[in-house]
Simulated scan of single mutants.
Amino acid sequence: MEPLLPVCLTAALLAGFVQGFAGFGSVLVALPLLLTVLDVRTAVPLGSLVAVSINVVMVARLHGHIQRGPMKTLIAGSLPGMAAGAWVLKDAPDALIKGILGAVILLLVAQSVVSPAPRTAPAGRFWAVVAGFCSGTVGVCTGANGPPVIAWASRQPWRRDELRATLTFYFLLTGLCIVTVQSTQGVVTRQVLTLFAWSLPALLAGIKIGGACCGKVDERTFRTVVLTLLGLIGTSMVWQAAGTALR
Results as ranks from 00 to 15, higher is better:
residue 95 A to F: 11
residue 125 R to S: 05
residue 170 Y to S: 07
residue 62 L to I: 01
residue 166 T to A: 08
residue 55 N to L: 03
residue 204 L to V: 15
residue 202 A to C: 13
residue 2 E to Y: 04
residue 192 V to R: 00
residue 66 I to W: 12
residue 37 V to M: 06
residue 117 A to Y: 07
residue 70 P to G: 09
residue 20 G to M: 02
residue 177 C to N: 09
residue 104 V to M: 15
residue 185 Q to W: 02
residue 94 D to W: 00
residue 157 P to L: 09
residue 184 T to C: 00
residue 192 V to Q: 00
residue 190 R to G: 05
residue 221 T to N: 13
residue 27 V to F: 12
residue 17 F to C: 10
residue 126 F to D: 05
residue 110 A to S: 06
residue 136 G to M: 02
residue 158 W to I: 11
residue 45 P to A: 04
residue 37 V to P: 05
residue 166 T to L: 03
residue 67 Q to L: 12
residue 222 F to Y: 14
residue 219 E to L: 14
residue 187 V to R: 00
residue 98 K to P: 00
residue 233 I to S: 12
residue 155 R to G: 02
residue 180 T to Q: 06
residue 85 G to E: 11
residue 88 V to D: 07
residue 56 V to L: 13
residue 22 A to F: 02
residue 6 P to I: 09
residue 53 S to Q: 06
residue 196 F to M: 15
residue 13 L to N: 12
residue 159 R to G: 13
residue 4 L to A: 02
residue 146 G to E: 08
residue 35 L to K: 12
residue 56 V to H: 01
residue 8 C to L: 05
residue 165 A to G: 03
residue 49 L to K: 10
residue 58 M to V: 15
residue 137 T to C: 13
residue 30 A to D: 11
residue 246 L to K: 14
residue 130 V to K: 06
residue 226 V to E: 11
residue 246 L to M: 14
residue 165 A to R: 01
residue 81 G to E: 03
residue 24 F to H: 07
residue 24 F to T: 11
residue 95 A to S: 13
residue 199 S to E: 08
residue 152 W to S: 01
residue 83 A to R: 04
residue 203 L to Q: 12
residue 223 R to M: 06
residue 1 M to R: 14
residue 91 D to S: 15
residue 13 L to G: 14
residue 184 T to S: 13
residue 5 L to A: 12
residue 191 Q to P: 00
residue 31 L to H: 10
residue 93 P to L: 03
residue 227 L to S: 03
residue 121 A to V: 09
residue 89 L to S: 14
residue 44 V to C: 01
residue 204 L to I: 14
residue 92 A to W: 15
residue 161 D to N: 14
residue 222 F to A: 03
residue 29 V to D: 04
residue 135 S to R: 04
residue 101 L to D: 09
residue 1 M to V: 15
residue 147 P to I: 04
residue 233 I to R: 11
residue 96 L to V: 15
residue 153 A to I: 09
residue 192 V to D: 01
residue 83 A to I: 14
residue 215 G to H: 04
residue 199 S to W: 08
residue 223 R to V: 03
residue 3 P to C: 02
residue 55 N to H: 10
residue 201 P to V: 02
residue 176 L to W: 06
residue 238 V to Y: 08
residue 178 I to E: 01
residue 7 V to R: 10
residue 95 A to Y: 11
residue 62 L to A: 11
residue 104 V to K: 09
